[in-house]
Amino acid sequence: MWRNTLHGWGIASIVMHWLSALIVVGLFALGWWMTGLGYYDYWYQLAPWWHKSFGMLLLGLTLLRVAWRLSQSTPLAQGARWERRAAHAGHVLLYVLLLTVMVSGYLISTAEGQGISVFGVFEVPALIVGLPHQATLAGDVHWYAAWALIVLAVGHTLAALKHHLLDRRDTLRRMWWPSVSRRQ
């Protein structure tokens, strides 16, 4: 139930997947909106605070998710050989982009030694500070990697829908119902 099998995803992977999806889309929209805010806007200080808090939460979740994913079996990929390879490369790239976006975001805010408050509960300390033009360069990486992540996530979604609806596979069912993993 909790763990993955060769037939489907366990609860842990399913929950982490959809939670990530929700937070990624939310953070992208929030980030887009907040960078356009004026100095005298009410949300000018608060929106980045939420953005950074959820970003750090997602970073923790993603590290946990990668560790969970690597520690056990994964459901067998479906489709032709080239499709399975492309899907695997796409999934690896999604993880890489996720980590790139979050690490670069972290490097912006901590560039001069300030930590990042996570919902006001605790603070993630600054570890790498004072690289040349750190905040500006990390900001550029954050922007382009976030775009790449969203574009790839849309492609990921379309591919899943195609396999489910056109190829009539159980792609979406096994990413939603943990019971699929118990099937023999």
Binding site: P48, I108, S109, A111, E112, H133, A135, T136
Partner: peptide, 23 residues
Amino acid sequence: TSLDTAHAERDKHILSDDFLNAS
């Protein structure tokens, strides 16, 4: 680009094309 106000996000903003356009 060596501007420093002891707050990374503010420095990034001041150096951006909103203000000094340091690039």
